[in-house]
Each structure stands twice: as C-alpha cells, then as structure tokens.
C-alpha cells in the first residue's frame, strides 16, 4: 500500500496583518507552521502504516525552505518526501496548484492507493485543492473524513457532513480530505527528528513533473487577485460602563431586548 499525504506550510494566520498604506502583507515576524489540518491527514496515513505497513510519502509545494514541513512529517513517521518548488509555480491559484500537485503525484506513483489532504489550509481556507487533485487524477473523492477503515482494496469511511455523519463504502484508490475529529496527531520522536534532519528531500520543478508552463503558477491560474485590503473597521454603537453602574447596564440590555421583541 502506498499513501501520499499533501501538506502545506502556512503562516500562523493569527499574526498576519496588512500594511494599510501599501495594501501588502506584512510577513515579518510571522512564524511558519505545518497547516494544522494536514496533521490529521498525516495521522490517518501513519495509522495505515502502523496497521498495514503502508509506505507514506509526503509532498508539499512552496518555497525551498518549505522542506521543513516535510522533515517534520518524516520525523513523525513518513517514509519519504518531495518538495515541489519552482518560480514557475509562484502565484498559483487552486486550479494551478491542483494541477501541479497532481502532476507530481503521477510522477511519484501513477497508481497510489490513497492521497490525503487536510480539509483545508488555514491561510486560504478554500478546501479546493484536494477535490481539484481528485479531478486531475480521475480518482474517487471523499471529503471531511473522520474515521477510516481499509480492508484489502475496500474502504469504509465516516464523513462529517453538515447534518450529521455518512458512512461510505468504496474501492481504492481514493483522494480523501480529513477533519480534526479523526484523531489526535502523534508527536515527532527525537529519533525521528535525527533521521528526518538528514533525509534527502528531492526538489522538483515544473519540468521535473512534466507540467505545462502555461498551466503553472500565475499564468496557469484562471483567477486573478484584483486587490487586497484590510477589512473595514466598524464603529460600535452605544457604550456603557458596567463597572460603575452595573444595574443601569443590565437595564439597557433588557430595554434593547424588549425593543427587538425578546424578553
């Protein structure tokens, strides 16, 4: 069994701000982390390694220094890693990203048993790349997986839907996106880090994965960002000091509730 996990290096989004004068991202001092949802995806793959001896390959697309997220995944137990990195991939939207990752997967193994993604990445929050890759690979897509069993070439999954859960049966291969409810990701061991630090991680560019330049990066992206800006600041309504006059504050709340037809 060969399982591929796609992981993304993301900025710790809580600290990303915009420079209001230039409308550009301020990235200084923002720490890069492995996308938290991808940790659950990795954990599902590692469980298959524990149980069925699956080989786990992690891939990421990003700047050359994004190899650190692959090393972190390998420290937790992934067997090997590949970094897709090329100026040609810069500015890719979800279409062009899905294309590049699908090309890389085809090179790693044209017939992987499973490809895992986190349900979404916390920087873009689109949840589109996993489904997009399933389309390029012409592969079964299962989203929001919270439990997975594999027996032979059959899988049974439980998915986390808006109104409850679905239990779905299908045949491998499949692309799956994984939710937080699936598990608690394991930690990396010290021994794992020792191996991962020294591991050779191939860096592939567009040519290495036979990607058409016209379909990569900014050129290959159907969507174009017209502008970025800071979210509008709302000015609040009435303000009361509940420390000095708590009773008056409570009366104001009740009056407002009554005005709105409540209480």
């Amino acid at each position: 069994m060969h399982v591929i996990v796609c992981v993304k290096q993301v900025p710790d989004t809580t600290n990303v701000r915009i420079n209001p004068e230039t409308n550009t991202l301020i990235r200084e001092g923002v720490e890069s982390i492995i996308n938290p949802y991808d940790e659950y995806a990795l954990e599902e793959a590692l469980k298959l390694k524990d149980k069925h001896g699956a080989r786990v390959t992690v891939i990421s697309m990003g700047p050359p220094q994004a190899d650190i997220v692959l090393r972190e995944a390998m420290a937790r137990g992934a067997d090997d890693g590949v970094l897709l990195t090329d100026r040609a991939f810069a500015g890719a939207d979800t279409w062009a990203t899905s294309y590049a990752i699908a090309q890389a997967i085809k090179k790693i193994n044209p017939n992987p048993d499973l490809v895992f993604f986190g349900k979404q990445a916390i920087d873009g929050d689109t949840a589109q790349v996993g489904p997009g890759v399933s389309e390029f690979l012409n592969c079964t897509l299962i989203t929001y997986v919270q439990a997975l069993e594999v027996k032979g070439d059959t899988f049974i999954v439980e998915t986390h839907m808006d109104e409850g859960t679905d239990v779905i049966e299908g045949k491998l291969p499949a692309v799956m996106t994984v939710v937080k409810e699936a598990s608690t990701p394991r930690f990396a061991s010290l021994g794992g880090w020792m191996i991962a630090k020294k591991a050779a991680i191939p860096k592939w560019g567009a040519k290495d994965v036979n990607a058409e330049p016209a379909l990569c990066g900014l050129n290959g992206s159907p969507t174009k960002v017209v502008k970025i800006f800071a979210p509008p600041v709302k000015t609040g309504g009435m303000r009361m000091d509940g420390r000095e006059e708590p009773k008056a504050a409570v009366e104001a709340i009740i009056k407002l509730l009554q005005d709105k037809g409540v209480a």
């Binding site: 900025p11 990303v16 991202l25 916390i122 929050d125 969507t223 017209v226 800006f229 800071a230 979210p231």
Partner: peptide
C-alpha cells in the same frame, strides 16, 4: 477573507 480574516481580497476570473 483570507489569512484567517485579517485580509480581504477581491478576485476575478
């Protein structure tokens, strides 16, 4: 919104 809502982006196809 992107980056956890700290930034808004306008996008076209």
């Amino acid at each position: 919104p992107a980056f956890g809502g700290n930034i808004m982006a306008t996008i076209m196809t």
